[in-house]
Design a protein around this nucleic acid. Sequence first.
DNA 1: GGTACGATTGTCT
DNA 2: GACAATCGTACCT
Length: 224
Amino acid sequence: MSQPAGAAGSVPDRSWFERPVLDVAADLLGSHLTHRTPEGTVTLRLTEVEAYGGADDPGSHAARGVTVRNRSMALAGGHLYAYRHLGLHTCLNVVTGPVGEPSAVLLRGAEVVDGSGLALARRTERGVVREERDLARGPARLAVALGAGVDHDGTDLLDAAEGLELRVSPDRGSGAWTSGGEVRRGPRVGVSGAGGDGALFPWRLWLADEPTVSAYRAVSSRRR
DNA sequence: GGTACGATTGTCT
DNA sequence: GACAATCGTACCT
């Protein structure tokens, strides 16, 4: 398959991922994530992410240290941390920081810029897709559209043989967007516990005016 | 060994 | 707007 003209961005190196998690999160917005499989290729443009730190972040999986589930968070930056939530859904994270310092960026929303037919087919298998913007709006939907699951946990994005490739948006300058919408910041979605009110950790980042950004939902109090 | 709960989503009212 | 689905992990006894 030939590279489309004007293919967005460049492939970052390891040091790009080993920066502070908030810096990486901000720079991931607008970046393109491609997954090549035998059935086809899907490329996403990331529009919404959330940053999660280590022991200092009470909302993070790593708040109580590295465990079997979150061990991928402590890998070198540039790896993928994928986990199953509620036994139903898969959520994808890009690991940041150096080895042994768990932190990651949760991919919450994206626009399908290539392979929308394949993404739609994958999503339709799991339910009804009402609008095209819903293809990858929400972390679990994003994972389905991309064709990634928990078996991609620990995958290295810098290893081309894995079929996953990240390209940083060419619009990214030194920390500020010049086009394509501005970066907004707010409390993280659905995080319960000490980090739930978002006052201390407004680490959800998204691009303003993007229809693929998921709606904010406060922590719901549900009976069991 | 047992139990509570979660970085969600889809459906029903 | 509210709730059920569903299961692996963490924590407690």
